[in-house]
């Protein structure tokens, strides 16, 4: 008996037009075509989607959670990127 399992694909679904595709889980499939069909049959049984992406799990490059501090924390102090950083008198409208 073959012990080679079908590759794992990550599934992304756009729930309706205007929204981004969101990661919902994964399926096993021998090829991308079947991965799409399997994703449709598993993750959109209640009309959850209008579009599906699948990508082989091992094709995804991910950031290392161990580097979270160096990757993301320095951004927290750059408050001047956010509109609330700037004080504008209430009387001034449309800004």
């Amino acid at each position: 008996m073959s012990r080679k399992e079908w590759p794992l694909y990550e599934v992304f679904i756009r729930s309706r037009n205007g929204l981004n595709h969101m990661h919902v889980g994964s399926v096993h499939a021998p090829d991308p075509k079947m991965a799409l069909e399997n994703a449709r049959d598993a993750y959109t049984r209640r009309g959850e989607g209008v579009s599906i992406w699948v990508v082989e799990s091992n094709a995804i490059a991910a950031s290392d959670p161990g580097e979270k501090a160096s990757l993301f924390e320095p951004l927290a102090e750059k408050v001047y990127r956010h509109p609330t950083f700037y004080d504008i008198p209430d009387e001034v409208k449309n800004i």
Binding site: W6, V27, H28, A29, M34, E37, N38, D41, A42, R45
Partner: peptide
């Protein structure tokens, strides 16, 4: 033959 296909056939 596989769980995914079980769901497909039932659909």
């Amino acid at each position: 033959p596989e769980l995914e296909e079980d769901m497909a056939l039932m659909n």
